[in-house]
Design a protein around this nucleic acid. Structure first.
Lengths: 209, 209
DNA sequence: CGGTTTCTTGATTGGGATCAATAGGAGTGG
DNA sequence: CCACTCCTATTGATCCCAATCAAGAAACCG
């Protein structure tokens, strides 16, 4: 138990705009978000970059580095954040000694795989407005699960970052926001979003087949 | 050691078209492909389905079920296949006892995450022909790594399945094949593909920015 | 063989990208 | 605190790539 305490005792503060880790740096630890908001970006050889995920309290980061010992993405704070740094060798050792920890680790990695498959589905088969609806609903759910309002929140990312994540251009994201507003589904002013019609938003996903 | 023998002793033959597992079925085991070729498909609530991956010798399947205890995808053999079935509880136990097995498991799950991020990049930022080029190069690499020809192989999947995986319609896939053939990059007749200009194919990926 | 699935190719359409211009906020330094 | 600048967001106009619609051809299978 004291080992587990030691595991989660390493804290780290990241200021807005700073990197938690960069692609190419070696795996030192996995990171649990204690507070704040971050994005991670995967990169193509040619310099293309794409947002692969947005992360908030409770999310675990850095798992892409386990396979090759090197991080394969950049992770940057979108607001001042607090991170719990778990040295990976210690985590591996403890997960051998504590079955429940082992199971937890496996579940978290599996959840990341399932999440990625969901994004693949979104990118491969949804139209622009469906993608944004799915994105907003996902944020809503995650805020709700953390005790925040599911219908009212501030986006921490720009339209361009949302677009990158959703495989759209920022203008398209902006237009989709405006369209939702016209349809009375949401009220949006800059980064502040209020969901007016949650069922209506959900209906956008399955109604369109 | 004999436990590991027991772990990998369970074999299962899957005929072309049969399911290895279905979405909703509970996690019994992870599956290693011994021979053959399979696809796995993720599904949307509304019935939409998308190919999430193609799998061949050496690939490990079923990891999406660890997080919730239920498979989140359908996995189907595209040709007669042989699968090694590893009961998951036994795998967890052994990975506690054998550190190298534990590391192996973590690496494989991490590799799946990295692979998924690559597909997300493809779906989010590439044009049709770039996607097909990336797909063919990926297959080529994987065949090469298994001792088969990297430049000559039979596709086991239909144009529609390739399209589903790449976020394209089957007609677009067919046109891209024809275009590559016109450009002397490949020779293709139905499912038989011969890569004539590997560097040329690679150039399609970074030349276009 | 006949029937069915798969593939190719052509014509047209449409959704999102691109180009462009303006406006709104946020941060900075005087 | 305000003026200035830069970044971010909105909106319009046009274009282009891939989807859709459609028709045949080729391969596979019982």
């Amino acid at each position: 138990m004291e080992k587990i305490d030691r595991l989660v005792s390493q804290r780290r503060r990241i200021r807005k705009g700073e990197h938690l880790y960069r692609a190419g740096s070696s795996l030192a630890a996995l990171y649990a978000v204690r507070a704040g908001f971050l994005k991670s970006c995967v990169l193509h050889e040619d310099g293309r970059e794409q947002v692969a995920g947005f992360h908030m309290m409770g999310d675990l980061l850095g798992m892409d580095a386990i396979s090759g010992g090197l991080h394969m993405s950049n992770t940057v704070a979108l607001e001042d954040s607090e991170i719990c740094e778990m040295p990976f060798p210690l985590l591996e050792q403890l997960s051998r000694e504590v079955p429940s920890l082992q199971q937890q680790l496996h579940r978290v990695m599996s959840r990341e795989i399932v999440r990625d498959h969901g994004v693949m589905l979104l990118l491969g088969s949804m139209k622009a407005e469906e993608r944004l609806a799915a994105f907003l609903l996902n944020l809503s759910q995650r805020f709700a699960a953390r005790g925040y309002s599911p219908t009212e929140f501030n986006l921490r990312m720009t339209r361009a970052e949302i677009g990158s994540y959703l495989g759209l251009k920022l203008e398209t994201v902006s237009r989709a926001f405006s369209s939702f507003q016209d349809q009375q589904l949401i009220a949006v002013r800059q980064r502040y979003v209020r969901i007016l019609d949650l069922p209506g938003l959900k209906a956008m996903l399955d109604s369109k087949r």
